[in-house]
Amino acid sequence: MPRVHIPAPARDLTGGEVELEVEATSVRRLIGALDERFPGFADRVLEDGELKPGLRVAVDGHVRAMGLLAQLEPDSQVHFLLAIGGG
């Protein structure tokens, strides 16, 4: 089952849980499942149905260009990160 790392500022919603297993096949579905378990989570990461401006999703250590549409494998690790601008 994919595992998701809960960002520190959102752990007030998860009762302090840092990493959770979530049954989902895409990032979008993972957020939906998290929101069902922890109401308000989707509002922290989504705006108008899309990832909030600047927010990125990393799957297995790589920031995925497909964002919400990125597919998950049973052993995927998911992180929410902010966009990083290089020079």
Partner: peptide, 11 residues
Amino acid sequence: DVRTDRQPAGE
């Protein structure tokens, strides 16, 4: 217009 935005996934 600037407010403190707590990130990632904060209020």
